[in-house]
């Protein structure tokens, strides 16, 4: 592992604060507007809120990864990495950095939102855990979409990646139901973790192949 490169990627994203503060703010705004369109009362089943959280984090992580490769592609940085065979490394670092600066903060904002609805701390912490895991999966797939649709806009990226994320959404839905029914979550959670490990270790290789083809 090249700490220096990882640090540089982190530094680049951190300095472009719009890129990581922006999505979190957008998420906050969505969260604020949600209760306003719904009568908040204790009769609402918590599923509604959780389902809303899954979908909105999905879309916001997409926003957050919009420039993950296109910026470095446009200004020639990727080209230079590719010449020195550092592409695959960079892909891993970029995804990691986006997860830390966007994925995880989003999960915590969502956690606070769920707590604010008087949903038990138990359920909220499970949601937090799920979001931390699923956001890494989302970021991987959206990065793939971004790599495929470089500078063609995010709608195309979304169109080609959302179908692959449907199984993850279904697992999240199952976790919601099981949590509310008080069933064991070990199976579902290990499935989610398994998917995360698979996705996070394979997708970067596909992405780096795609980026190389772009640079031809």
């Amino acid at each position: 592992m090249n700490r220096n490169l990882l640090f540089i990627e982190g530094f680049k994203l951190f300095k472009r604060s719009r890129a990581w503060v922006g999505p979190v703010l957008v998420f906050l705004l969505i969260i604020i507007s949600f209760p306003l369109t719904l009568d908040i009362n204790s009769d609402n089943p918590p599923q509604i809120y959780l389902s809303f959280i899954w979908i909105s984090t999905l879309l916001v992580t997409m926003l957050g990864t919009e420039l993950i490769f296109s910026e470095d592609f446009e200004d020639g940085t990727l080209e230079q990495y590719a010449v020195n065979n550092k592409l695959i490394e960079i892909v891993f670092y970029k995804i990691l950095v986006h997860w830390v600066l966007i994925g995880i903060p989003l999960a915590f904002v969502a956690f606070l939102f769920i707590l604010s609805l008087n949903i038990s701390i138990h359920i909220s912490s499970i949601a937090l855990l799920c979001l931390v895991i699923s956001n890494l999966i989302f970021i991987n797939f959206f990065s793939l979409g971004n790599a495929l649709s470089l500078k063609k806009g995010s709608i195309l990226g979304l169109l080609i990646t959302i179908p692959f994320l449907i199984p993850v959404l279904i697992v999240l839905g199952k976790i919601t139901t099981s949590t509310l029914l008080g069933l064991s979550l070990v199976g579902h959670l290990s499935l989610l973790v398994g998917v995360m490990i698979l996705v996070a270790s394979f997708i970067p290789f596909i992405i780096s192949f795609i980026l190389r083809t772009h640079l031809e």
Binding site: L148, S149, K152, L156, L159, I160, I162, P163
Partner: peptide, 12 residues
């Protein structure tokens, strides 16, 4: 939707 995504990817 996947078919549509593929078509628009190629067209882009």
């Amino acid at each position: 939707i996947m078919y549509l995504g593929l078509i628009s990817l190629h067209a882009s």
